[in-house]
């Protein structure tokens, strides 16, 4: 019994980060209707950046969070500005293929640069825990949960309360309308992609203390974000957060019951199931 409660608890903690990562994906989709196939790659890249800042310069991951967010922002901004903005009107399959190209480049650049092996950052607090009766909580996971929610809240306030945020939401609602009222839609797009990537960048730092990474981790991160977003409903901020918690719990419960290899089969099956069972969600994003 404790095992299951423990799994649920772990799931909730990691689910907060899933939520943050998926909000990035959802933002990019909501505004540009682009599916960021390189989402996991961007996350892994941010983890490497944070890792090297830690091992080479001794900067704590929680400190380098902002550096990683800014770096990811620049990467995302560039991808939109120089690549996606040129093909806004081609069929969405072609846009996906472009992002697939970006994903291939990022993943294999990581592979060539740092090899295929897993790496983990050993911080002072990596292994520290707190006890809650019979349950144990890893400190880094707890911190990650809190930070992820805080950042999500920050983003939410930004989108709701600032002029730029309102503009982004306007562009998301109606591209042509936004053009009509004279917004520089392309700039806004680049900014939004940057913002979505920044979520991922921050998340990279946040999870580094408790998750090892390798270039091959990317696909499963991308996949998890897709599951979360499709489950939560594209564009629904709260929905995506809740979706993150749900998937975190499901995965951790699954890991108790299943062997680690069949865990991935479970994830893919979950993705298919979620896509099939939520036809009113994002599938109609374009063709309606």
């Amino acid at each position: 019994m404790t095992l299951y409660v423990q799994a649920i608890l772990n799931g909730i903690l990691v689910g907060g980060v899933y939520g943050l990562v998926a909000i990035g994906l959802s933002l990019i989709f909501g505004v540009m209707k682009i599916i960021n196939f390189a989402h996991g790659e961007m996350l892994v890249l941010a983890m490497y950046l944070s890792f090297f800042l830690f091992t080479l310069l001794g900067i704590d991951p929680y400190m380098s969070l902002f550096v990683c967010a800014v770096a990811a922002f620049i990467l995302g901004y560039g991808v939109q500005r120089f690549l996606v903005n040129r093909i806004l009107h081609v069929p969405e399959e072609m846009q996906v293929l472009l992002m697939l190209g970006v994903a291939l480049v990022l993943q294999n650049a990581t592979l060539v640069a740092w090899g295929p092996n897993f790496r983990a950052a050993q911080t002072r607090y990596s292994l520290s825990t707190v006890w809650l009766g019979p349950l144990v909580m890893d400190v880094p996971r707890l911190v990650a949960f809190v930070l992820a929610l805080a950042l999500a809240l920050l983003l939410y306030l930004f989108l709701r309360r600032t002029e730029l945020g309102t503009t982004i939401r306007a562009a998301a609602d109606n591209r042509d309308g936004a053009v009509l009222i004279g917004l520089d839609v392309r700039r806004i797009y680049a900014f939004s992609f940057g913002l979505g990537a920044a979520c991922v960048g921050a998340a990279g730092s946040i999870i580094l203390p408790f998750l090892p990474m390798s270039p091959y981790s990317a696909l499963s991160f991308t996949l998890t974000s897709f599951i979360v977003v499709i489950l939560g409903g594209m564009g629904s901020f709260l929905g995506v957060l809740v979706g993150g918690l749900f998937v975190g719990v499901a995965e951790n419960l699954g890991a108790v019951v299943l062997t680690s290899s069949s865990k991935y089969i479970f994830s893919y099956a979950l993705l298919i199931l979620v896509m099939v069972l939520r036809p009113q969600g994002i599938f109609r994003g374009r063709s309606g």
């Binding site: 599916i35 069929p91 969405e92 399959e93 846009q95 996906v96 996949l223 897709f226 290899s261 069949s262 991935y264 089969i265 893919y268 099956a269 993705l271 298919i272 896509m275 099939v276 036809p279 994002i282 599938f283 109609r284 374009r286 063709s287």
Partner: peptide
């Protein structure tokens, strides 16, 4: 049947193929 088109078709075919990949590995 469930109107999965465009980018989502890419995603679902990828998911199916990966399931077979993992099954074969085991």
């Amino acid at each position: 049947r469930f109107h999965i088109r465009g980018a989502y078709f890419i995603l679902i075919t990828l998911a199916f193929a990966e399931i077979f990949h993992l099954l074969a590995l085991h």
